[in-house]
């Protein structure tokens, strides 16, 4: 009996269909980089890519948390606000003379607790994640403004030292400690998703929550965990942003939830859950960052083209997802 193997044949090589979206994104990234290198002088260097990491380390971390949530079929609109709240908390506490370690610890705990609370409401009261995290978004932004309405500069010496530190990679290449932090988060998260039961349960719930329940998986614990992870990642992203900006401000990271969602979707993760890879999210963030880089190299192109390009990419990738999932259900119904 012949069975469908779910593989695409490309030039004698077979590729599981589930990797196709990630490969498309990777191809897109390579094509954009190649086009940029041909078109602009000084573009085709490693440092351009490293700068994309440097400028988007906080987005990368936030998008990692978002990936967990979206893989379960949920969504987290609160991430941008939690990032802002974290910069605010850090700035205020440092101003008041708290030790750096305590500040970092507290910020991370606050982010995780906010996520935990939202996850619990989503699961136990069966309210759509969209609405719960919308309330979380209002709450976190509101808390920012109750702390202070102005931008608060960060002058703590160890913070500024960390913010200005660079790590040379040999040659002309360098990165910042934030990039290292971001990559560590990616690696840990990838390990969790691939090699732990929590990670596999995340995928299972995204595939079918009802089946996951019937298979005896800890659905409640897992769902709450992903929102907690997302809250934690947002707080960490907020800390990285406060290194980058050296200030705390309630208007930081406005709309970052959209960038994070866009990065995840462009990275090939299904918004309905159950399918996607962290590598894709990394590529999604890189693609977003590279769009900005190209537009700044272009000079004459204005910044709003970024949004239009991102919207167009979203459109293409969502249609691609529809096609892939339509083919899948087609195969199943035979």
């Amino acid at each position: 009996m012949t069975t469908l193997t779910g593989r695409l044949r490309i030039g004698g090589q077979t590729i599981p269909r589930k990797y196709v979206p990630v490969l498309v994104t990777a191809g897109l990234f390579v094509a954009m980089f190649a086009a940029g290198s041909v078109r602009y002088e000084a573009f085709g260097t490693g440092q351009v890519i490293l700068n994309v990491f440097v400028d988007n380390a906080f987005l990368l971390v936030v998008a990692v948390g978002m990936t967990f949530v979206i893989l379960t079929g949920g969504i987290d609109l609160s991430v941008g606000s939690v990032v802002a709240l974290s910069t605010m908390l850090a700035a205020v506490l440092l101003r008041d003379g708290w030790p750096v370690v305590a500040v970092i610890g507290l910020v991370l705990v606050v982010g995780a607790v906010l996520g935990l609370g939202m996850g619990a409401i989503v699961h136990y009261f069966e309210i759509q994640p969209f609405i719960v995290t919308l309330a979380g978004m209002f709450l976190a932004r509101g808390l920012c403004y109750t702390i202070a309405t102005d931008s608060i500069p960060i002058t703590d010496p160890s913070f500024t030292a960390f913010a200005q530190a660079t790590i040379p990679l040999g040659g002309e290449l360098w990165i910042t400690p934030s990039v290292v932090a971001g990559l560590v988060v990616v690696v840990v998260a990838a390990y969790v998703l691939h090699y732990t039961r929590l990670g596999r349960n995340v995928y299972a719930i995204g595939g079918s929550e009802q089946s996951a329940l019937l298979m005896g998986l800890p659905v409640a614990r897992t769902k709450i965990a992903v929102y907690t992870i997302s809250g934690f990642c947002s707080a960490l992203g907020g800390l990285l942003l406060s290194f980058y900006m050296l200030s705390g401000y309630g208007l930081h990271a406005v709309g970052m939830e959209l960038d994070a969602i866009a990065a995840v979707v462009i990275g090939g993760t299904l918004l309905t859950g159950g399918s996607g890879y962290l590598l894709g999210t990394v590529l999604g963030v890189l693609v977003l960052g590279l769009i900005q880089t190209i537009i700044s190299f272009e000079g004459t192109l204005s910044s709003w083209w970024t949004k239009i390009f991102i919207g167009a990419l979203l459109f293409v990738f969502i249609l691609l997802q529809r096609l892939i999932s339509a083919r899948r259900t087609g195969a199943r119904s035979t």
């Binding site: 090699y195 349960n201 995928y203 299972a204 595939g207 079918s208 009802q210 019937l214």
Partner: peptide, 23 residues
């Protein structure tokens, strides 16, 4: 009542996967 997005092996084992040190 399985998760069609997971692999065949995972669908047989999920929830009681063989682990070593949590991996």
């Amino acid at each position: 009542n399985l998760c069609a997005n997971l692999s065949v092996a995972e669908n047989i084992f999920i929830g009681r996967e063989p682990r070593r040190f949590g991996r």
